[in-house]
């Protein structure tokens, strides 16, 4: 059974890069374009891990992270931040709210895979 990763980011480019990077791994990537949609999909899809941007319209990533961790249905899902706004304040706030890791954009494929595989077994796609 492939691991399910929910990528919450307002950029389709980021969704494409994440999907392309994880293509060879046993992973299904589902997407949401803002924090509000991300919370709804997290409740419905029960992903194994959430990849969360910080700066987004409608609801930003920090607000979404607080809501995810306050919700019994989503509080145990590991959250890794993936954001261009990797200033110390932002990283500290995200960590205090329960994010496990902060990956700064721009990111390499290796950094993304390493950041995710620390928390879930990504495996290899069956031939």
């Amino acid at each position: 059974m492939p691991k399910k990763i929910l990528s919450i980011d307002d950029s389709r480019m980021v969704h494409m890069v994440v999907t392309k990077t994880l293509k060879s791994l046993d992973v299904e990537v589902i997407t949401a374009v803002n924090g509000q949609e991300g919370i709804e999909k997290a409740e419905k899809e029960k992903p194994d891990l959430i990849l969360l941007d910080a700066t987004m319209p409608v609801m930003d990533g920090i607000e979404a992270l607080a809501a995810l961790k306050a919700n019994p249905a989503t509080k145990d899902i590991p959250v890794v931040m993936l954001s261009a706004d990797s200033g110390k304040d932002n990283v500290e706030r995200a960590t205090q709210l329960g994010a496990l890791r902060f990956i700064a954009k721009p990111f390499t494929g290796d950094a993304l895979v390493a950041g995710l595989s620390a928390y879930i077994d990504l495996g290899q796609k069956a031939a």
């Binding site: 700066t55 954001s83 200033g87 954009k105």
Partner: peptide, 20 residues
């Protein structure tokens, strides 16, 4: 967004942080 974030990360190391 990424260029601004990278630039801001570098200035933050000198004490000049901000939000994007």
């Amino acid at each position: 967004n990424m260029v601004s974030g990278d630039m801001k990360r570098r200035t933050a190391e000198l004490g000049y942080n901000g939000l994007l």
